[in-house]
Amino acid sequence: MSAPLEHEEAIGLLDAWVRGELSQEESARVEEHVGGCARCEAQMEALGDGGLAAVMKGGIAAQETDVLPGVQRKLRLRSRGKFYGERQRKGPSPWPMLIGSVVVLVGLAAAYFLMGQVAGTGAPPATSTSAPK
């Protein structure tokens, strides 16, 4: 890299630098200068001057920033209830209902076959031969 740029030299290149019109080497020289020059830093502060920050921060406060419930939900789902599972019990969960239904169905099926075997001493219904595997 060639000699460090003086402030005045760097200033002359700033327009082109911001537009991305400098060669890589020139650009690197400007960046090296700007990164270490107190006068450039002061100018940079003036460019920001709080106004840009105000605009950039604007509108955020009013937006939805309540992130926690979504985080808890994702962690609960992805850990299959290992984390944040206690909140799941508060609301209606589909699992007890689902497991209950399966148990009842299995019970009904078992009762059907048992009754079929007790009552059906004659020819068994065609379905009873194909249903159990």
Binding site: E31, M44, L47
Partner: peptide, 19 residues
């Protein structure tokens, strides 16, 4: 990033936004 690079990027970014 190095601090100098951070400064120069912020400088350029501000100027580009203003442009």
């Amino acid at each position: 990033l190095p601090v100098g690079t951070v400064k120069s990027r912020i400088h350029r970014a501000r100027a580009q936004v203003r442009l």
